[in-house]
Design a protein around this nucleic acid. Structure first.
Lengths: 218, 218, 218, 218
DNA sequence: AATGAATGAGAGTTCATTCAT
DNA sequence: GATGAATGAACTCTCATTCAT
């Protein structure tokens, strides 16, 4: 509600090789400072100093502090989304629900492994002005889920609601694990459990016949 | 990793009546500024001005900026936790799982209704240095859940893991709803759905007998 | 045409004696720096340093650099206008034209003696953004002249035009003298000459030899 | 008093055709920026960008920012003075005073029509460091006037003073009109009036009724 | 002749915080 | 207990100018 968002589009594309290196150094330094000192300690001077470039060079490529972080997020997301691509393809093929969920959960976990600390700062500290507009909106994600789930979630009374719950839950559990209990990401039981959580939520009954209704065995 | 956390304990308890009023005015102004301008726009001078007190008075009661926000969080949590008390008592009585869950979910929803915008800033913008140490740690909450769930979650292979998933999911879904889709909090289907989500996750089998296996009907 | 004018109203009135002294020191330093280094060399840090106060103190009383200069102009004008008051009263009494003119010229000269160098910077170097809106507009001055001259300037074909010429000439000659030939201000012949210039311009007749002694008809 | 004036002589004459075009583009852009953004907004980077040339190219022809503006003034004056040449020739022929004055006034008006906005910036905003040394000094102009007026201004007690007043008045009235009331320049009455002003000032007699129509004696 | 890249120096401005009354 | 005044330390961002190609 507060301050108007300043323009964050990069100022000038580096064309020479040297300049590309400069921009990379700046962004790498920015990531470091952001993780190390948080948004409050993220000052352009610090970034420039750490990058070993003059502060004015920084401003030749980024119009302001926010733009730096936005570009950082853009690149982070680009890297993170790689695994999600494959999962989305699987979803389109519509195998069984547990199989689909497993793919997505694993993609989400992979996503969170990329740079968990950076991810944490992005989600937990940035003011609105420094948040990158997401390339895919939550609403779009939910619509996508609705289409995918439609054949499977016959027993779900409100599909839109379920899509919302699904999106939030999926992300929250993995995000929190990545931030607070990173070791969980490596345990197969964790992934299994998340799949179970979502699978049972969506396919409400008749419940899996057998005692250990794991997604794996379904 | 970041900067060392400064002491945030309030500086001196106001004893006279006038002083109590001063402190209240300061905190109210602080909440307003925080919601309105975000953490970045939250400056002690602004707070003092809005509160109508001199900046030096502010520093007589709060040793620094962070302390202000910490106290704000303390009071917010105190208000929020009221409903949770009752729920905890119910849990101790150990009725059926869905009943227990419904109580907790409803308490959590009530909690998020208290001051959603303030809540959002607390969770999404504060730097570590301004975050209040929670009065109950996540680990404690999870241990509590383990004790509570023990009789019900027989089919759950890893109770500690389940407690983690439960805690995170419960909070995330309601928190996100409160922040992004506040109207959801008023829909009974929403609460129902969250109960279903958790109930089916914890009681993995045999599944509810009938077609619309809502918690409500269990 | 360029940049929008920033707000230049002073930020906060000093109430304690100490603060009044601070503000005075700042303004005095500002005048010094402005005269010494011109608008381009007029930096708030320099001013604060010269005034012996912290830069933040400066900003507590003036919202920005321009405001400082605007206040300087305000005070300068206030001082300068003192003599003009008397002259205006004389004009209202409507003695003979030369007498009136002499009063005004002398007041204008006095005005330009106040702080000629400062005056020069004000008129010759300030960007629009730092120019104080005049308390009396040129148009108003001209309207005043028209009223005053009406009984005397019977032979003047276009009184509005004459008021414009009068205003500009009067100011320019004295201003230029003050800036480039300050010694002129002390010579009575100078004042006499300016009076002659304006008097003969306004009282055109009996014109030299012919009625409408226009160059054209000469 | 201010900062030492840096050398402003152009750095190197463009010899190739391409280079001439470059210099012209730079100067044209400079004029645009100066008029549009004022001296304060006049930055070499902006000029280079607008000119479509690299900043380094700009510095190949101009040693610094001031030099740019100085060259701009040089060219402006060259263009402006064209009409004045003719007038000067007329003056040398010594026709009647009103005729001479009319020529000069008209030349001055034409001069001010060339690029009034640029002219305004030159006279009202440039710091000393960026002001071009005039090719003809004020003193020279005044000496010239003295020679010209000598046969006509017999009644003028101090010819040097009159030359000063004449020079200043002539310029100021037309300059102010050009800046603040441009429509005046097109009205013949305006020119007439200025001629009358100067003519009557210089040819004092036969004075209106009395010999030395001084205010003093009135 | 021309350009992309780089930079030292500094400008304006804010802020958390303390002191003196 | 409360206030007006004051300040050290940064911070963001710009600019004139130069270097390497």
């Amino acid at each position: 509600m507060a301050t108007r968002r300043p323009r964050t589009a990069p100022r000038k594309r580096p064309t020479q090789e040297r300049a590309v290196a400069t921009v990379d150094a700046i962004l790498q330094a920015a990531a470091y400072i952001l993780v190390r000192h948080g948004w409050d300690g993220f000052t352009t001077n610090r970034v420039a100093e750490r990058a070993g470039v003059n502060i004015a060079s920084l401003y030749q490529y980024f119009p302001n502090k926010e733009a730096l972080v936005v570009e950082l997020q853009r690149r982070h997301v680009a890297k993170s989304r790689v695994g999600m691509r494959g999962a989305v393809d699987v979803l389109r093929a519509q195998p069984s629900l547990p199989v689909m969920l497993r793919w997505v959960v694993e993609a989400a976990v992979a996503e969170h492994r990329v740079a968990p600390e950076l991810h944490r700062v992005f989600t937990e500290e940035l003011p609105r002005s420094a948040r990158a507009a997401p390339d895919v909106s939550d609403a779009e994600v939910e619509r996508f889920w609705m289409r995918v789930l439609e054949p499977f979630a016959r027993e779900v009374p409100d599909l839109a609601l379920a899509a919302f719950v699904l999106r939030v839950t999926l992300h929250a559990v993995i995000h929190e694990a990545a931030c607070a209990r990173p070791e969980l990401l490596d345990r197969p039981e964790f992934i299994d459990d998340v799949v179970v959580l979502l699978d049972r939520y969506l396919r409400r009954e008749p419940a899996p016949r057998r005692a250990r209704g794991r997604a794996r065995t379904a």
